[in-house]
Design a protein around this nucleic acid. Structure first.
Lengths: 120, 120
DNA sequence: CTCGACAGTAACCAAAGGTTACCGAGTACT
DNA sequence: AGTACTCGGTAACCTTTGGTTACTGTCGAG
């Protein structure tokens, strides 16, 4: 018996969605866009350490899945603006909770890690 | 100026923690362990599609970071049990929210994806 | 007539993840 | 005595994802 949305089943679409969220930069991009509209370079500067190629890939995926809107202005130099769709905005809250957890528990995690590395 | 826990800064430890959570199988393992104690094979069967090698890696990382406890019983055939630590349990709620989001919004995401693929 | 701005792309390289086969110790069966 | 089976992995190998560096096109400013 298969539940309607079982993220543990690799064939279930909700697992596909979860995999997408787990892609390396997806979360950061959604969090960075929060409720602003940002241009490509602004986004790249905001998110430390992301390569342009990968940022492009991530944004294209997010656009395809209806989480991000991409608006191109026919100007020179080119201007492209990214913003969250309504669907994308609905993801901010759960993702924000994870971010918050990370910022709250960094200390405990790093301490555990050092303890583990000592013991080796 | 660097905020104390800025997940956007690649040098900030909280970013390291966020990257760990974003690793492909971390979330699923934490959710699978929920509040049970599971053996290696049980975990592998519960989480569809995970290779034993990668499950081992993931579990070792989670153990190192103090999220998972690993107990080995000197029996034959061997028995190894995994469970969440207190810290690990504190991650269930934020992660559960993401899982819930995924299960709720699968439809919208898949619809957007089909629309995008049609338009090509 | 050359320079710079932006939003990428191209070519190449490194790292993470996946696949299949196999191991060792002891117990149960024949 | 020999064989089969259990579990929690590991070993060797391959593929996919992510990362780096350099480069492009277009147009306005100097």
């Amino acid at each position: 018996m298969v539940r309607k949305g079982d993220a543990f089943d690799p064939n279930c679409p909700s697992r596909v969605v979860l995999d997408r969220i787990a892609e390396k930069w997806t979360g950061l991009v959604v969090l960075a866009l929060n409720d602003e509209t940002l241009r490509f370079t602004q986004l790249r500067d905001r998110i430390g350490g992301v390569a342009p190629k990968v940022l492009t890939q991530t944004l294209r995926s997010l656009e395809r899945d209806g989480l991000v809107r991409r608006r191109v202005y026919a100007e020179v130099p080119p201007r492209v603006e990214y913003s969250l769709t309504r669907l994308g905005r609905s993801l901010r809250e759960p993702l924000g909770a994870v971010q918050h957890w990370a910022e709250q528990h960094v200390g405990a995690v790093m301490a555990a890690r050092e303890r583990a590395d000592q013991a080796s």
